[in-house]
Lab assay of single mutants.
Amino acid sequence: KITVTFNGEEKARRYYKKMQKHNLKVEIRVENNQWVVHVE
Score class of each variant (00 low, 15 high):
Val36Ser: 04
Thr3Cys: 05
Asn7Cys: 10
Lys25Gly: 04
Thr3Lys: 08
Ile2Phe: 15
Phe6Trp: 02
His38Glu: 15
Lys11Asn: 15
Asn33Leu: 06
Ile28Pro: 00
Lys17Pro: 01
Lys11Thr: 14
Lys11Met: 15
Lys17Asn: 13
Asn23Thr: 04
Val26Phe: 02
His22Phe: 11
Lys18Ile: 12
Ala12Met: 02
Glu40Leu: 14
Ala12Pro: 02
Thr3Asp: 04
Gln34Ala: 08
Phe6Cys: 04
Lys25Cys: 06
His22Gly: 07
Ile28Lys: 00
Tyr16Glu: 04
Glu27Ile: 10
His22Val: 06
Asn32His: 08
Glu31Ser: 06
Val4Ser: 03
Arg13Ala: 05
Val36Glu: 04
Gln34Ile: 13
Asn23Leu: 06
Arg29Gly: 08
Met19Thr: 02
Tyr15Pro: 01
Phe6Arg: 00
His38Ile: 15
Val36Pro: 00
His22Tyr: 13
Arg14Tyr: 08
Asn33Thr: 05
Arg14Trp: 11
Ala12Cys: 04
Glu9Ile: 10
Glu10Gln: 09
Lys1Ala: 11
Asn23Glu: 05
Asn7Phe: 09
Glu31Ala: 05
Asn7Asp: 15
Lys25Trp: 09
Val37Asn: 00
Phe6Ser: 01
Ile28Gly: 00
Ile28Cys: 04
Trp35Tyr: 04
Val26Thr: 04
Lys18Asn: 08
Asn32Arg: 05
Lys25Met: 09
Met19Arg: 02
Val30Tyr: 15
Trp35Leu: 02
Val4Asp: 01
Val39Thr: 03
Ala12Asp: 02
Gln34Tyr: 11
Tyr15Met: 03
Asn23Phe: 13
Glu40Arg: 06
Lys18Glu: 14
Tyr16Asp: 01
Arg29Glu: 07
Val4Trp: 05
Lys1Met: 12
Val39Gly: 01
Val26Arg: 00
Glu40Tyr: 15
Leu24Val: 12
Glu27Leu: 06
Ala12His: 03
Asn33Ser: 08
Asn23Gln: 08
Asn33Met: 07
Lys17Asp: 14
Phe6Leu: 02
Glu40His: 13
Glu27His: 07
Gln34Trp: 07
Tyr16Ser: 04
Ile2Trp: 15
Asn23Arg: 05
Val30Gly: 05
Lys17Phe: 10
Met19Asp: 02
Gln34Gly: 05
Glu9Arg: 08
Phe6Thr: 01
Met19His: 03
Ala12Phe: 05
His38Lys: 07
Thr5Leu: 11
Glu31Arg: 04
Lys1Leu: 11
His22Asn: 10
Asn32Pro: 03
Lys1Gly: 14
Lys17Glu: 15
Thr5Gln: 07
Val30Pro: 06
Val30Glu: 12
Val39Arg: 01
Val39Trp: 06
Val39Gln: 02
Thr5Glu: 05
Met19Ser: 03
Ala12Thr: 02
Gly8Asp: 15
Arg14Leu: 13
Val4Tyr: 10
Ile2Tyr: 15
Asn7Tyr: 10
Lys18Ala: 14
Val26Trp: 02
Glu31Ile: 12
Val26Asp: 01
Lys1Gln: 09
Lys21Thr: 09
Glu27Gly: 03
Lys17Gln: 13
Glu27Val: 10
Thr5Gly: 04
Leu24Asp: 03
Val30Lys: 14
Lys21Val: 07
Lys25Val: 09
Lys18Arg: 11
Gln20Ala: 09
Glu10Tyr: 09
Arg14Gln: 14
Leu24Ala: 07
Val30Cys: 11
Val30Asp: 03
Gln34Arg: 12
Asn32Tyr: 05
Val30Trp: 13
Tyr15Val: 02
Val37Leu: 03
Val37Gly: 00
Val26Glu: 00
Val37Lys: 00
Glu31Trp: 06
Glu27Thr: 13
Thr3His: 05
Glu27Cys: 09
Arg29Asn: 06
Gln34Phe: 11
Val39Asp: 00
Arg29Pro: 00
Glu10Ile: 08
Trp35Val: 03
Gln34Thr: 10
Lys18Leu: 15
Lys21Glu: 13
Tyr15Asn: 01
Val37Pro: 00
Arg13Ser: 04
Lys25Ile: 10
Glu10Trp: 12
Asn33Gln: 08
Lys1Tyr: 14
His22Ala: 12
Thr5Phe: 13
Arg13Trp: 14
Thr5Ile: 14
Trp35Arg: 00
Val39Glu: 00
Ile28His: 00
Lys25His: 11
Gly8Pro: 02
Tyr15Asp: 02
Asn23Pro: 03
Lys11Leu: 14
Tyr16Gln: 06
Val30His: 14
Asn7Lys: 11
Asn33Phe: 07
Ala12Gly: 02
Val4Arg: 09
Asn23Gly: 15
Gln34Met: 14
Gln20Asp: 03
Asn32Trp: 04
Thr3Gln: 06
Met19Gln: 03
Glu10Ser: 10
Phe6Gly: 01
Glu31Val: 12
Arg13Lys: 11
Gln20Lys: 13
Tyr15Leu: 03
Ile28Ser: 00
Phe6Asp: 01
Val4Thr: 04
Val37Glu: 01
Gln20Glu: 07
Ile2Asn: 06
Glu40Asp: 10
Arg14Glu: 15
Lys18Val: 09
Val26Gln: 01
Leu24His: 08
Arg14Ala: 15
Leu24Asn: 06
Asn7Leu: 09
Tyr15His: 03
Lys1Glu: 07
Gln20Trp: 04
Glu10Asn: 09
Val36Met: 05
Asn33Ile: 03
Val39Met: 06
Ile28Ala: 01
Ala12Glu: 02
Thr5Ala: 09
His38Leu: 14
Asn32Gly: 14
Phe6Gln: 01
Arg13Asn: 07
Ile28Phe: 04
Trp35Ala: 01
Val39Cys: 04
Ala12Asn: 02
Lys1Ser: 13
Phe6Met: 02
Trp35Asp: 00
Glu31Gly: 03
Tyr16His: 04
Arg29Val: 12
Lys11Ala: 15
Val4Gln: 05
Asn7Trp: 10
Gln34Glu: 07
His22Arg: 13
Phe6Ala: 01
Gln20Val: 11
Met19Asn: 02
Asn23Ile: 05
Asn32Gln: 06
Glu9His: 05
Arg14Val: 09
Glu10Ala: 13
Val37Tyr: 00
Asn33His: 09
Glu40Ile: 13
Glu40Ala: 08
Ala12Val: 02
Val26Ala: 07
Gln34His: 10
Tyr15Ala: 02
Arg13Val: 10
Trp35Pro: 00
Glu31Phe: 07
Glu9Phe: 13
Tyr16Trp: 06
Leu24Arg: 07
Lys25Glu: 05
His38Gly: 04
Tyr16Phe: 12
Met19Glu: 01
Gly8Met: 14
Leu24Cys: 06
Asn7His: 09
Ile2Val: 11
Thr5Met: 11
Tyr16Pro: 01
Ile2His: 12
Val39Asn: 00
Val26Tyr: 01
Arg14Phe: 06
Thr5Arg: 14
Thr5Trp: 13
Lys18Pro: 01
His38Tyr: 15
Val4His: 06
Arg14Thr: 10
Asn7Ile: 08
Asn7Gln: 12
Glu40Ser: 12
Glu10Arg: 10
Asn32Leu: 06
Thr3Arg: 08
Lys17Trp: 10
Lys1His: 13
Asn7Ser: 13
Glu27Ser: 13
Tyr16Leu: 11
Glu31Lys: 05
Asn7Arg: 10
Lys17Tyr: 11
Arg13Tyr: 13
Lys18Asp: 09
Arg13Ile: 13
His22Thr: 08
Val26Leu: 04
Lys18Tyr: 14
Lys17Gly: 05
Lys18Cys: 13
Lys21Gly: 11
Lys1Pro: 10
Lys17Ser: 09
Arg13Thr: 07
Arg29Phe: 13
Lys17Thr: 10
Glu10Phe: 08
Val39His: 04
His22Ile: 10
His38Gln: 13
Glu9Gly: 04
Val26Gly: 02
Val37Ile: 05
Thr3Asn: 04
Val37Ala: 01
Asn32Ile: 04
Asn32Asp: 09
Arg13Glu: 06
Tyr15Thr: 01
Gly8Ala: 15
Asn33Ala: 07
Val30Thr: 07
Ile2Met: 10
Arg29Gln: 09
His22Trp: 10
Leu24Tyr: 14
Val26Ser: 03
Gln34Leu: 14
Tyr16Val: 11
Ile28Met: 08
Gly8Asn: 15
Thr5His: 11
Val39Ser: 03
Thr3Ser: 09
Thr5Ser: 08
Met19Ile: 05
His38Asp: 12
Asn33Arg: 04
Arg29Met: 12
Arg14Ser: 10
Arg29Tyr: 14
Thr5Tyr: 15
Val36Asp: 01
Val39Phe: 07
Asn33Val: 03
Gln34Ser: 08
Arg14Ile: 12
His22Gln: 14
Asn33Gly: 15
Glu27Asp: 08
Ile2Asp: 03
Ile28Asp: 00
Gln20Leu: 15
Val30Ala: 08
Gln20Tyr: 05
Ala12Tyr: 05
Gly8Val: 15
Glu9Val: 08
His22Lys: 13
